[in-house]
Computed example of a mutant assay.
Amino acid sequence: MSTIKFIDDALFCATPFALSYTDPDQKWIIRQHLNSLFRDFASLEPSIGIFTHNDGSEVKLLNANGELTVSRQAPPVPLTIWVHEFYPQMAPIVYVNLENCMYPVYENHPFVDYSGAIISSYLSNWNLTKCNLSDLVHNLIKLFSHNHPFYYTGSSNFTHQSIVSKMEAMDRLVCMIYYDMAANSAKTQEEIQNLWGIQGELEKRKEDIRVLIGGLGEERRRLKRRTEELSEECDELLNWLRVYERGSVFAIDDAFEALDEESESVLERLAADLGLEDLIYALDKAVEEGALTFEVYMKHIRVLAREQFLCRAKMAKIERARDFL
C-alpha cells in the first residue's frame, strides 16, 4: 500500500474505527502536509495509534515515525510525530522514542524532557499559516545537529552564524540560556547545601549556648544561695564579736562550749595532750641548743610522758564507752 493511499484511507474512513479528525477541510490540510513530509523525508512512515493526553483523554491519531538523520557523524534520532486532533490550529506532538535506544540520553537536555517530549521554539510559536510538518522536521535537524539528545563520540555540526535563520538563532539562544541556568542551578544548589550545613552548625552552637546559659544560671543561683548562707554566718560572727569585743574580761575557755560533761572531759584531755606535746617539743629544742642537760631533760620527759599516757588512756576509755552505748 502506498503512503498516499494509507493516509487517504485513514483520514476518510467512515467506520467506527475512524480517526478523531472531524472537519473535512482539516483532513485535506493534514493530507497535504503529511504527503509533503513523507516526500521530503523518506525515512519516516505513516501510522495510526491511540494517543493519551495529560488529562487522561484518549484520541485516535495519525503519526509519522522513523529515524531522523541529523548529520553524518551523529547517530539518527528515532522520532514519532503525532498529528493533533485540532491540527493545524494546534501544533503536532513530537517525541524522541527512548525505547530500545542504543545510546544514553542526556538527563538535562534543553529541548528533550525526561519522557522524550520535544520542546522547541518552532513548536512553542506554532502558527497555522506559516508552520507545517516538513518545516518542523527541518528545524529539528538543525536543532539536533548542535544539541543532539544522545551521548555519542563525535563533533557537533554548527552552521555559520551569517546564514542561520531567526528560528535557529532563537533555539541556540534558548540552548545557551538553558545551560547557563543549569550551571547556575547546580552552583545555587551547592551554595544552598553549604548554607544548610552552616545553619545546622549554628543550630548546634545555639543548643550548646542554651545549655551553657542554663548551667551558668544554675551556678548563679547556687552562688546566690551560698552568699546568703555566708551572709548569715557573718552576721552570727559579728553578733559574737559584739558580745566578746576587745576589752571584755572573760575566760577564754568559755568561748568553747561542750554538749555535755563527757564532751567537756574529752575537750580538756585533748587540750592537755596538745599542751604536753608542745612542752616535750620545747624540751627537745632546749637539749639541741644546749640550754638543758641531758639528765634534767630525761627527768622531765619521764614525768611528762607519764602524764600524757594517762591523758590518752582516759580519752581512749571515754571513746570505748561511747562505742558501747
Score class of each variant (00 low, 15 high):
residue 94 V to M: 05
residue 214 G to Y: 07
residue 129 T to Q: 13
residue 205 R to W: 15
residue 92 P to E: 00
residue 275 G to S: 15
residue 290 G to N: 02
residue 178 Y to L: 06
residue 56 G to V: 10
residue 127 N to Q: 05
residue 80 T to L: 09
residue 63 N to T: 14
residue 185 S to P: 14
residue 101 C to V: 07
residue 93 I to W: 00
residue 165 S to I: 06
residue 253 D to M: 01
residue 230 L to D: 10
residue 91 A to V: 08
residue 50 I to Y: 03
residue 109 H to T: 05
residue 284 D to Y: 00
residue 267 L to A: 10
residue 275 G to M: 12
residue 99 E to R: 09
residue 79 L to T: 03
residue 198 I to C: 08
residue 105 V to K: 05
residue 286 A to E: 06
residue 314 K to E: 09
residue 128 L to G: 01
residue 28 W to P: 01
residue 93 I to A: 02
residue 299 K to F: 00
residue 138 H to Q: 04
residue 105 V to T: 04
residue 319 E to M: 11
residue 180 D to Q: 11
residue 195 L to S: 08
residue 252 I to K: 12
residue 91 A to E: 01
residue 115 S to V: 02
residue 243 V to I: 14
residue 152 Y to A: 04
residue 275 G to C: 13
residue 297 Y to F: 03
residue 58 E to W: 01
residue 270 L to A: 08
residue 140 L to Q: 03
residue 6 F to T: 12
residue 189 Q to S: 07
residue 278 D to R: 09
residue 36 S to W: 02
residue 231 S to M: 07
residue 187 K to H: 09
residue 83 V to T: 05
residue 313 A to M: 12
residue 215 G to M: 14
residue 70 V to D: 04
residue 144 F to L: 05
residue 239 N to Q: 13
residue 105 V to E: 06
residue 202 L to W: 06
residue 171 D to N: 09
residue 35 N to W: 07
residue 56 G to Y: 02
residue 55 D to P: 10
residue 67 E to L: 13
residue 186 A to S: 09
residue 127 N to S: 09
residue 136 L to I: 00
residue 238 L to F: 05
residue 32 Q to E: 14
residue 298 M to K: 12
residue 179 Y to L: 04
residue 43 S to K: 02
residue 70 V to P: 00
residue 31 R to L: 02
residue 286 A to N: 04
residue 15 T to M: 08
residue 299 K to E: 14
residue 271 A to P: 11
residue 262 E to L: 09
residue 317 K to N: 11
residue 29 I to S: 08
residue 184 N to M: 14
residue 273 D to K: 04
residue 308 Q to M: 05
residue 39 R to A: 14
residue 247 G to Q: 04
residue 167 M to Y: 11
residue 68 L to K: 01
residue 212 L to C: 13
residue 192 I to N: 09
residue 149 P to I: 00
residue 283 L to P: 04
residue 55 D to G: 10
residue 186 A to Y: 01
residue 22 T to S: 12
residue 154 G to W: 14
residue 269 R to L: 15
residue 14 A to E: 14
residue 244 Y to C: 09
residue 26 Q to F: 00
residue 122 Y to F: 11
residue 290 G to S: 03
residue 110 P to F: 02
residue 303 V to D: 08
residue 228 E to F: 05
residue 282 A to M: 01
residue 270 L to I: 07
residue 59 V to P: 04
residue 31 R to A: 01
residue 201 E to Q: 14
